[in-house]
Amino acid sequence: MERFRVSIGDEVLHTIGVSEPGVLTVSVYSVVRKPEGELPEHKCNLTLTGLDSSNHHALDWGGFCLEAGDRISIEVLPEDSFDPPESKTQIRLRDLDPAPKRAPETDEEELRNIADELGWKLIEEAPPVGAAGPPSSVPPFVSALPSPGIDCSSTLGMERFLVRVRGETHTIGVPGPGVLSVIIAAVVRHVQGAEPDHECMMELGGLWADRDTANWPKYDLVPGDKIEIEVLPEGSFDIPVRLRSWNQISEEHLAGKRVWARRTAWDLGWTLIENEPEPHSISN
């Protein structure tokens, strides 16, 4: 699993890492909240954290306050030794959710749950002869709902981040108040009977107006990559590559459920009735 060497200016803060399976995260973020009738809450921080999944330990190498002019460097390094965390906290699973919802054990159980959620009628027997074939398995993730607009001329009191990686540069921001983040993470999941699931990536994102989201290009990272982040004062920023409202996100999630339910019902030989017909009047 990769390690990250993190610096501010010329000072190396830490070389961080975790044993597999686990999660390693570098987060650079700016948050401005403006509760009604109160003064704005504002912070801009760098955090270095990890999760040792085998031992259920949350790892922390500390948090650092940032301001305009600070320059952060993150180098992606191959597997090797790393600095011990400043704190290690045992996670008790019951603390994460004192009454966790049991996950469905079978497709049949999940299909019953989704049909109930969507208000569809599920008949656990084959559809009538001549019924249509299986539906497309590709969910319509391009929502018909309009995307939110965004004014890229100013971040309205929030910092911007200038991000450099592989010769490319992105200036990201949101029209505050809101949240702006650069997340660099390495994740290794061990799945019984399968090859480990491994990912190392960087995501650039923002949230504003409580419900609208913005994303800039996402990068898959490899050892040797170096990410440089400069904290800039308020100003203009690059147009995001993707804008979505909360309603769009909800619709896309439901669209995926609908397609999965249709496909699974067909595979099981069951019948889904999505919209029951209105009863017809009989006239003499």
Results as ranks from 00 to 15, higher is better:
97 D>G: 10
93 L>G: 01
191 V>A: 08
211 R>M: 06
104 P>N: 12
154 S>V: 09
99 A>N: 15
176 G>A: 12
190 H>I: 11
169 T>P: 00
93 L>N: 01
200 C>L: 12
123 I>E: 13
165 V>L: 15
103 A>G: 08
100 P>S: 09
149 G>L: 04
151 D>C: 02
184 I>P: 00
118 L>M: 15
110 E>C: 03
136 S>D: 14
96 L>V: 01
170 H>D: 07
101 K>M: 08
113 N>S: 12
202 M>W: 04
198 H>G: 02
92 R>M: 02
200 C>W: 06
122 L>M: 07
197 D>E: 14
173 G>P: 09
172 I>F: 02
109 E>H: 05
119 G>V: 09
182 V>G: 04
110 E>H: 15
103 A>I: 13
106 T>D: 05
148 P>K: 09
104 P>K: 10
194 A>C: 07
201 M>K: 14
107 D>C: 07
209 A>G: 10
175 P>M: 08
197 D>P: 00
142 V>Q: 03
178 G>W: 11
101 K>S: 07
140 P>K: 15
192 Q>N: 08
89 T>A: 11
117 E>Q: 13
112 R>C: 04
191 V>C: 07
168 E>W: 04
106 T>M: 04
111 L>W: 03
142 V>G: 02
162 L>T: 05
100 P>F: 01
88 K>L: 08
166 R>T: 00
128 P>R: 15
144 A>D: 11
141 F>G: 05
121 K>M: 08
176 G>T: 14
113 N>E: 13
165 V>K: 08
149 G>E: 14
168 E>G: 03
187 V>P: 02
